Amino acid sequence: MGLRDRLQSLTLLAFVWGVAEASLFFVVPDVPVSLIALARGWQAGLRAALAAAAGATLGGTALAVFASHAPETAVALVDAVPAIPSAMIARLQATMAGTDSAAGLAGVLIQASLSGVPYKIAAASAPGLGIPVWELALLTPLVRLPRFVALAAAGAALHSLTPALPRRIQPVRVRLLLAALGWSAFYGAYWSKVGG
């Protein structure tokens, strides 16, 4: 497999991960986006970030469409995802219900994204709160992309530091292992905090 094929495969991985996480998967696309950037640099990381945001838009929109037909079932499915307590769902729903404009909703979703509240809660809840699916679909890339790009930039920055690293941690596999351990520690702490 050539470099171009590998990059396309990594971009597809980020897209599929974005679809899955925006609906019912529990590990954010930030993980593959940052690892791709760490291994392949800024351009690959940016492509992965864009693909993950597109996937999140598709996955979140699909969940919202489902929720428009079966709102209670959609919320129950999200409630069954690991590390999503019912209290977290209720808090985000109450905050979303208090918004009176698309800009207000965008602010709520950005704040939720930055504080570790899974986006899928908003996607499953929006139709039941009277928020149109199209509005959620338009806001999704605006809400998800900045964080993905920031993590791609962080991964790419670490990628560019490779020559300055001690020789024993320069190989890509070693750096990816260290990053995977970092993400594992992050999720261990997050899940213990939210009761996952």
Rank of each mutant, 00 (worst) to 15 (best):
A154H: 00
V16D: 03
L178C: 13
S23F: 00
L129V: 10
A48E: 03
L151R: 04
G188F: 07
Y187F: 13
V149Y: 03
P146M: 06
A48S: 08
A123Q: 05
L136F: 15
A153I: 08
L129M: 10
F15D: 00
K120E: 02
A164Q: 15
L3P: 09
L139K: 11
V75S: 09
L63F: 06
G59Q: 03
Y119Q: 13
S34H: 12
A51Y: 03
A126N: 10
A53R: 00
Q8A: 14
V172N: 11
R167M: 08
H69R: 15
L114P: 02
T99Q: 15
A76W: 11
A185T: 00
V75R: 02
G182P: 03
V174T: 14
S68Y: 09
A44P: 03
A164S: 14
R91K: 15
L50H: 03
W17D: 08
F186K: 01
T140R: 09
L139S: 13
V27F: 04
A124F: 04
W134T: 14
L181P: 01
V28G: 04
R168C: 09
M1G: 14
V194K: 02
K120M: 08
A76F: 10
A54D: 11
P32R: 00
V27K: 00
F26W: 05
A112K: 02
M88L: 13
L139G: 12
R168W: 12
A153F: 12
A90Y: 09
L165I: 06
